[in-house]
């Protein structure tokens, strides 16, 4: 699913919610997942003019989860350690986007190359 403008964000969030409901994720975990997704989408829109998001259902043993992959072809992040720190931002924001999103999900993986773009993958388990 491609997200290029701000108005795409709300339908995207609803899609994620649909998937979360499908695997019977609890309300709090749903909210955490969608909030994290919302943070990452905003980053993508602001710094990379949009990108592509893949929503998948993953299974581990008895547990189901949702994996979201955010891929953009923006400028990339030059210092990941700094970007993952609370309160650090190159734009004028609170600097909670990346670290906050990481706290809200079970698995968080970021790959970036300056000039080529950034890919963030998150997984939230329905009981986690």
């Amino acid at each position: 699913m491609a997200v290029v403008k701000e108005q795409d964000v709300v339908p995207f969030r609803n899609r994620v919610r649909e998937y979360a409901v499908k695997i019977k994720m609890g309300l709090v975990n749903q909210t955490k997942l969608i909030t994290a997704a919302s943070e990452l989408v905003r980053n993508m829109l602001r710094y990379a003019n949009g990108g592509k998001i893949r929503i998948e259902i993953v299974t581990k043993g008895r547990d189901n989860g949702i994996r979201l992959t955010f891929a953009d072809t923006g400028p990339g992040i030059s210092n990941i350690d700094l970007a993952m720190k609370d309160g650090y931002s190159t734009g004028k924001s609170l600097g909670l986007g990346l670290p906050g999103a990481k706290r809200l999900v079970n698995e968080f993986n970021i790959q970036t190359e300056t000039g080529k773009g950034t890919t963030v993958t998150i997984i939230k388990w329905s009981n986690g």
């Binding site: 309300l27 749903q30 909210t31 955490k32 909030t35 670290p99 809200l104």
Partner: peptide
């Protein structure tokens, strides 16, 4: 409640 928990977890 879910929003409150999420905000706290987010660090806000």
């Amino acid at each position: 409640p879910a929003v409150a928990i999420t905000l706290v977890e987010l660090g806000l």
